[in-house]
Write a protein that binds this DNA or RNA. Sequence first.
DNA 1: GGTGGTCATAACCATCAGCTATCACAACGG
DNA 2: CCGTTGTGATAGCTGATGGTTATGACCACC
Lengths: 313, 313
Amino acid sequence: MVMTTTDVHGRELRYFVTVAEELHFTRAAERLYVSQPALSKQIRALERQLGGPLFVRDRHGVTLTPTGTALLPHARRMLAVWDEGRSAVERSLADQRTTLTIGMSTSPGRGGLLPAIRSRFTAAHPNANIRLRQISWEDPTAGLADASTDVAFVWLPLPDEHRYTCTVLAEEPRLLALPETHPLASRPEIDFARDLLDEPFLALPDSAGPLHDYWLATDSRGGVPPRIGAEVASTEETYEALVAGLGVVLVATGNAPLITLGGVVTRPVLGIEPSRYVLAHRTDDHRPLPHAYARACRQVAGSNSVTGGGKTA
Amino acid sequence: MVMTTTDVHGRELRYFVTVAEELHFTRAAERLYVSQPALSKQIRALERQLGGPLFVRDRHGVTLTPTGTALLPHARRMLAVWDEGRSAVERSLADQRTTLTIGMSTSPGRGGLLPAIRSRFTAAHPNANIRLRQISWEDPTAGLADASTDVAFVWLPLPDEHRYTCTVLAEEPRLLALPETHPLASRPEIDFARDLLDEPFLALPDSAGPLHDYWLATDSRGGVPPRIGAEVASTEETYEALVAGLGVVLVATGNAPLITLGGVVTRPVLGIEPSRYVLAHRTDDHRPLPHAYARACRQVAGSNSVTGGGKTA
DNA sequence: GGTGGTCATAACCATCAGCTATCACAACGG
DNA sequence: CCGTTGTGATAGCTGATGGTTATGACCACC
């Protein structure tokens, strides 16, 4: 069986429409900047593919057959749709050249961190636009993985970490957030291995990859599997789960203010690693805007006495 | 300067949409019945052409970039439009296989000629549909030239006569049609060269080709150019021009009843050739329906004692 | 630390779109 | 009546390209 291809090349339609407009192969060919034989061959190929003639070639000129007349508006529309598609892509690419999309897993906060970076960034790129996007914790890369963001404020560790270049903004101890009514709330500080192994925790979704285990401090549990009280994917969900008593959760020191609104308190925890908050961008992304933003970040981090250090991974 | 082609092949869009649906090159490739490298190459080519990536390839899968997301609906729509176009063509071709479109310059009339042909034709092709189309005299081939009709009742001579195969239905003397108030209306018969050389005539449009001169009987004028009283392109226009006194006109005997309605009379004319009314179809048209209709015509013409003869050119 | 799965790359082959040169044919003009 | 002009079609060639198989790099999972 002969597999007849049902596709069409845009070029064929363009040729067809031009011949239909000129009703003259030679003139159409020069309008199309191709030789007349090339045009003839293309039209014949299209006719062969469709199974019937589109034009009647006559001494006095060329005329459309009914079939050709039937096809013409569709061909025009198809070319128009393709033009729309191309300009949509063009707009999208232009947008990506001029605007920087910043993803964030949690609000950076930390007293003017974002404005400080922004002012340095806009000094280097005064015409660049900035777009901020809050990304669900389902995606630990905060949009970097699917290119929906250009740079992102995220927590280490990241999945596929070599794909991303990170600038550490803060290395902070992790605190325990818990309802103020919780028995442990009376302690001034808490020992992880002694007090928390049986405690139900709020956990990130599985899709968060290594972060899932990281915020459960699985490394510090000595093989004892954690109890999961609920799954949370945003700051708001975390707060609600805390006050509902579904579990306790580790938070970075810098994020504590976001969660200790009412009925929730935080306590220092002994025996777990501090957290590292970073600005990341894709390693294979060489566009100027993300790099400039990362550079601004390094400058701010280096001059920021509150954060642990300005080291760039 | 590099001339970057702005066209796209439908195949590329189909591939793109499939990958976007599967978010998996290998699965998409087998759905498309191509090898995975072929698919990868095509997508890369499309990305290169558009100037930016459409997908992010990741260990965990494939995701659309914002650009890809922007393109996707347009790609889908384009494929849909092409499907519409193809089915429009398909409908047109199917229509042409099952229905016979008959063009006519003037109503065939002549006492049941059309029904007689039709009954023989439908006997041979009971499922065929017949469509009658009145064609302006601008086109002396009554739609054969641009394939808008399959067979046509027309007058000889035709332009590009070798392109058409004709069956003579009637060879009739030409009469003069004129207003009953015209001085010549009192004559029982009229001599063309003696009485009509200075008379204004109704003429066919120039586009009618050889018919233009034929119905002015230019051959019988001995080089004297005809006077044109008006240009007419249909029976109705002719009648109106006659009663308006714009000129006189030659008509075939069989068409006289169409024109002698009120205030118009016909008279025999000496010294001009008779007219030949034929059923024509394109010589290069080998489809069964037109041939069957021509065959039916030959049978009717052969048994018709009124017409001159059933000869096939 | 294989093993299986992903997509990318390489090397090769067939097809095809483009070119130039030419043909077939009709119309026109001397 | 015969060359000239102008039409679209054809032939033969070349470079580009879409397809194949085989293989590579990389990661996840036993």
